[in-house]
């Protein structure tokens, strides 16, 4: 990847991020969809605490929303954007330009990072200001878990975006992610799940990301709800790193395949099909 393409790509990502902030529909979707729901939850839950620990329930929920924001942005919003770009011809446009595809990918990654950053800040702000949740006691863990969690999921999101045939298929792809959301311990403690689901959850990055984030925000009195009664941070790092490697191996050939197949006649055929349906 040449330096110019990377530089233009990063600037492109920033520009697209600003376009999203200026688009009312997107903005409302983000704000109400995640941050708004969380803020409402904050007010509704009030001062309730997790049994026998004194930890406000809202803190646990805040961490869950944070984990899910990263996961959802990387694995739902991001692939959706890729599919849309393919259908509208953005990908093809960049394919006609020297260095366009690397710049495009860099741009999309930057936009995803910006979205994750904005939503994370808003969720923590809502939790702290509205719900009285504490700031993290371990900033370092927060930083590396967020970063590694993002790096682990964005390439996977790219891979998903490449294999989805159309925008209609995105809804179907969302279902397993929703199932993961409920079984991965981000909103419901994982130890309440049957053992099979616990093992399944641990195979995916969402569980590990949630665990790492809980380690940064929650006191050790909450450990009773965790598998093995430990934050298992080395495992968090190893699992997220493994997913990063898997994503990096999986995404590039899929991206190459998708961009190689992009052409004017394919674009025309897709648009014709879309008009008919």
């Amino acid at each position: 990847m040449n330096a110019r393409a990377l530089r233009i790509g990063m600037k492109r990502g920033w520009t697209e991020h600003n376009h999203l902030l200026r688009t009312r529909k997107e903005l409302l979707g983000t704000l109400i969809g995640t941050v708004g729901v969380f803020a409402a939850l904050t007010l509704w839950m009030g001062d309730s605490t997790v049994e026998e620990t004194g930890v406000p329930t809202i803190t646990f929920m805040m961490v869950g929303f944070l984990a899910f924001t990263v996961f959802g942005t990387a694995l739902m919003t991001f692939p959706m954007a890729l599919v849309t770009d393919r259908e509208e011809g953005t990908l093809l446009r960049l394919r006609t330009i020297p260095g366009g595809i690397p710049a495009y990918l860099a741009g999309r990654a930057v936009t995803a990072l910006c979205q994750i950053a904005v939503q994370s800040v808003l969720i923590v702000a809502a939790g702290v200001l509205l719900g009285g949740a504490p700031l993290p006691h371990d900033w370092f863990t927060l930083a590396w878990v967020l970063l590694l969690g993002t790096v682990a999921t964005v390439p996977l999101g790219a891979a998903i975006g490449c294999v989805l045939p159309s925008r209609n298929a995105v809804g179907v792809a969302t279902l397993p992610l929703m199932a993961l959301m409920f079984t991965s311990g981000v909103f419901i403690p994982v130890t309440l799940m049957p053992e099979v689901l616990q093992w399944t959850a641990q195979a995916f990055p969402l569980y590990w990301q949630g665990l790492g984030l809980r380690a940064a925000f929650l006191p050790d009195t909450m450990l009773a709800a965790e598998i093995g009664g430990s934050w298992r941070l080395p495992y968090v790092a190893a699992a997220l790193a493994a997913w990063t490697v898997a994503g990096m191996l999986l995404a590039p050939p899929l991206i190459r395949r998708v961009t190689r197949r992009e052409s004017g006649s394919r674009l025309a055929a897709r648009q014709l099909a879309a008009q008919r349906s």
């Binding site: 520009t15 697209e16 376009h19 200026r22 688009t23 770009d85 509208e88 011809g89 953005t90 093809l92 446009r93 004017g264 674009l267 025309a268 648009q271």
Partner: peptide, 10 residues
């Protein structure tokens, strides 16, 4: 090309 509708927000 014929069918470009890309970059609509730009």
């Amino acid at each position: 090309l014929q069918n470009w509708r890309d970059h609509a927000r730009w």
